[in-house]
């Protein structure tokens, strides 16, 4: 192998320090949807960067070309995460954006990503995905993309090595520490645990917004069949969204510590005592002698 193609699939997710949930209208407040790179995907990119470094050091200088391509599907603003990925060290970015891709569930997303990979990097060696995105948390796109590309796959990968056309992996799966091996091409998903992402230098970030190899692909560019227009083709439909936390009573107490604690016990001593398995009632049966 004198050339290795690594691909990282990245999702932009809402930056939520606050839940962008409007309890009145019972909808997500889209205007609050400032984006960030999904943490697991960022770890996946870091894994790719580290593997590239290791392989470059192992190879005779100049012999091997290892290229990292990052791909995202989303609204036009998702280009930001590609720029950030370039600043971290990826070589090029592909933005899949088209209203016809909006509303895709995981099945359709995996088909669109698969079509794009086959188009731009048909000779890919290894695809990296985050193990689960922080917004919808399905963790389904990685395994489904492996199916679409018809390659072997392993999820939750914590260590990996590429050697002579295959990849060796360590992962923790349901209390089993597994060492696995698969031939390339293959796909791995990376949890936000072991590959801690490097810091993006501000200068580099600026540079990647000015230059940087990012191309945009529309549905037509990957010859997306009308049968796959996302909103209609997706087999799952969301019928209702609600916030369980918004339905709590949210009793507010304030004031001096001693007073609020007294009030807390007055109102909730049964609940506190019940959970602790202790009787916290002040016994008023102590009759003076």
């Amino acid at each position: 192998m004198d050339k290795i193609e690594l691909i990282v699939c990245i999702k932009q997710v809402p930056l939520v320090s606050e839940l962008p949930w409007d309890p009145k209208t019972k909808t997500l407040r889209r205007e609050m949807a400032e984006g960030m790179m999904d943490p697991a995907a960022k770890h996946a990119l870091e894994a790719a960067l580290q593997i590239r470094k290791v392989m470059e050091e192992k190879a005779v200088a100049g012999k091997k070309k290892i290229r990292i391509t990052v791909i995202t599907m989303g609204p036009p603003m998702s280009e930001e995460v590609l720029r950030e990925a370039l600043a971290m060290g990826a070589d090029s970015g592909v933005l899949l954006t088209d209203p016809r891709m909006a509303g895709a569930d995981t099945l359709i997303t995996s088909k669109i990503l698969g079509a794009a990979i086959k188009k731009v990097r048909p000779d890919f060696d290894l695809v990296f995905c985050g193990s689960a995105a922080s917004d919808s948390e399905t963790g389904q796109v990685g395994p489904q993309l492996a199916e679409e590309l018809d390659v072997p796959a392993a999820a939750y990968v914590e260590r990996l090595d590429i050697e002579n056309g295959h990849i060796r992996i360590q992962r923790l799966c349901d209390n089993f520490l597994e060492t696995l091996e698969m031939d390339l091409p293959a796909l791995v998903t990376i949890p936000p645990r072991t590959f801690f992402p490097r810091h993006v230098p501000l200068g580099g970030l600026q540079q990647s917004f000015e230059g940087g190899d990012v191309r945009t692909l529309l549905a037509a560019d990957i010859a997306l069949s009308p049968d796959l227009y996302a909103a209609k083709a997706s087999p799952t439909k969301i019928v209702n969204v609600f916030s369980p936390t918004a339905e709590k009573e949210n009793i507010r107490l304030r004031g001096a510590a001693k007073k609020v604690v007294e009030e807390l016990f007055r109102r909730f001593e049964d609940r506190i005592g019940g959970a602790a398995g202790k009787d916290l009632k002040i016994s008023d049966l102590k009759i003076p002698e």
């Binding site: 009793i251 304030r254 609020v260 604690v261 909730f268 916290l280 009632k281 002040i282």
Partner: peptide, 30 residues
């Protein structure tokens, strides 16, 4: 605080200390 059933706007350390004191009092009295 927004996702709590009971939200106490106060110093965490002071409330913790007061809770310990109150619990000790109640556990002794029973």
């Amino acid at each position: 605080m927004k996702m709590a059933d009971v939200a106490i706007a106060a110093d965490a350390n002071q409330v913790c200390t007061a809770l310990i004191k109150e619990l000790k009092r109640r556990l002794k009295s029973s």
